[in-house]
């Protein structure tokens, strides 16, 4: 039943929305100037540092290289975007 519903709603999805989603995903890869290994290495070191101070959900950690508009709004600049869910503050730090 769920599958049937999915099939029906999927058919109704505009092809331009499919195009936009696919483009967004492919551009994340195109825009990153370094290799996945490099990103993984950086990620694990960032985690090590943060772990000293915070209890984080390591499996949900999301670090991506993307593009954003600079503060003066004049240029497109690369940006490292990290989403790090915190489970708890480590006690004794404050």
């Amino acid at each position: 039943m769920m599958d049937l519903l999915k099939l029906l709603t999927r058919k109704k999805e505009n092809s331009k929305d499919v195009a936009k989603e696919r483009l967004k995903l492919v551009l994340i890869h195109d825009r990153s100037t370094f290799s996945p290994q490099f990103l993984e290495m950086m990620k694990s070191e960032i985690i090590q540092v943060i772990r000293k101070y915070l209890d984080v959900e390591e499996e949900l950690l999301d670090i991506q290289l993307t593009k954003t508009t600079s503060e003066d709004g004049e240029r497109i600049v690369p940006a490292l975007v990290a989403n790090i869910p915190i489970r708890a503050m480590r006690s004794g730090n404050r």
Binding site: N14, S15, K16, D17, K20, K67, I76
Partner: peptide, 19 residues
């Protein structure tokens, strides 16, 4: 095609390219 949702809109493209 844009009206029937089969072509990306100008806003879609600007959103992606950010220029």
């Amino acid at each position: 095609m844009v009206r029937r949702g089969d072509m990306m809109t100008i806003d879609d493209i600007i959103d992606i390219l950010a220029i």
